[in-house]
Amino acid sequence: MNGHPDPACWLIVNPASGSNEAASAETVAAALGERGWSVGRTIIFPDQPLPDPAALDSAGIAMAVVYAGDGTVNTLINGLAGWGGAVLVLPGGTMNLLAQRLHRSLDMDDILDIVTGGGARRCRPVCVRCDGLLALAGLLVGPGTRWNRVRESMRDFALADMATETIEAIRQSASGPYVVARENGLARKSGYPLIELTPGEHGIQIDGYYAEDPLDYAGQAWAIVRRRFREGPHDRLGVAEAIVLSSIEGSPLACLIDGEPAECPSPFRFTVEPCAVDLLASAHDF
């Protein structure tokens, strides 16, 4: 962006996100203050509702700073569609996939130095349209998304729930209903328990994850639990502007949109679309 941004901002944090803790709001606000930015209001999500364009405009705020995980960031940005201000996404979660798109591997202090020094630019990165929402960092489709519930149980130390969810995740991942990409000549006709759609500069990168033997399956499950999807065995299916995915049985498609569970009808045509609000970027996209 050209010149220095307006130093007044609102700060949104989620203490439950991976990189957060009780003092995160104070830490980020102090870091902003040290660089000449004033935090007009701090919103602790989900205890407090996320701001909408009308609330920000009425307060004269043109910058929202969010320090949270990809799920919270997705909800905030989808809710700010059409707003004339800009959002600064800081890496405050477990994977921080959108923050990596915007800032690569820079840490919070480096990002703030660049942004407050006028070295960032406003952009609207390519996203994936999934029914009523946009996936800004990544979209997972298929019965393998059930492993996310295992991960949540692990995070909450709910051992009984973790055991139950693990059994169900194994059952669904092994028996489907698998997801097929009939228009893609590289895709397996039998389908996949998990297909990953990653937005980027050239469109949607498509990867189909599978397990052919118990060792593959164990590796895949562990990769999904840790949200390290690219470590599992998979087929690279290319890059496209759109992809039609279907449940092999015609049932609705289970999805994870930036890590949050959702559902799409089957078949569904996933398309690329620019983000509906300006984001600040300090590095090249993937």
Results as ranks from 00 to 15, higher is better:
3 G>F: 03
4 H>F: 10
7 P>K: 14
12 I>E: 08
13 V>A: 09
19 S>H: 11
20 N>R: 07
21 E>S: 09
22 A>F: 01
23 A>K: 06
26 E>L: 10
29 A>S: 15
31 A>L: 13
37 W>P: 00
42 T>G: 06
42 T>Q: 15
48 Q>K: 01
49 P>R: 07
51 P>M: 07
52 D>S: 11
60 G>Q: 09
61 I>H: 03
62 A>E: 15
65 V>Y: 05
65 V>S: 11
67 Y>G: 01
69 G>D: 08
75 T>E: 12
75 T>V: 09
81 A>D: 07
85 G>M: 02
86 A>L: 00
86 A>W: 07
89 V>Y: 13
90 L>R: 14
95 M>F: 01
97 L>D: 06
101 R>V: 11
101 R>H: 13
105 S>F: 10
106 L>A: 14
106 L>I: 01
106 L>Q: 09
107 D>W: 04
108 M>C: 09
111 I>L: 04
119 G>F: 02
122 R>I: 08
122 R>D: 12
122 R>P: 04
123 C>D: 13
127 C>G: 12
127 C>I: 12
132 G>Q: 15
133 L>Q: 12
134 L>Y: 01
134 L>V: 07
134 L>R: 13
137 A>N: 01
142 G>A: 07
150 V>A: 13
151 R>P: 05
153 S>N: 08
160 A>G: 10
161 D>L: 13
162 M>C: 15
167 I>D: 15
168 E>N: 05
179 V>P: 01
182 R>Y: 08
183 E>Q: 14
185 G>R: 13
185 G>M: 03
193 P>T: 07
195 I>N: 02
195 I>V: 15
197 L>D: 03
201 E>K: 03
212 E>N: 05
212 E>V: 03
214 P>A: 00
215 L>R: 10
228 R>G: 03
229 F>S: 04
231 E>R: 03
234 H>K: 11
236 R>G: 02
239 V>A: 04
242 A>E: 13
242 A>P: 00
244 V>Q: 11
247 S>K: 10
248 I>Y: 04
248 I>S: 14
249 E>Q: 13
256 L>K: 06
259 G>P: 00
261 P>W: 08
261 P>C: 10
261 P>N: 11
262 A>C: 13
262 A>V: 03
263 E>K: 09
268 F>I: 08
270 F>K: 04
273 E>F: 03
274 P>Y: 01
276 A>H: 10
277 V>M: 08
278 D>Y: 01
280 L>A: 11
280 L>S: 12
281 A>H: 05
282 S>I: 06
283 A>S: 12
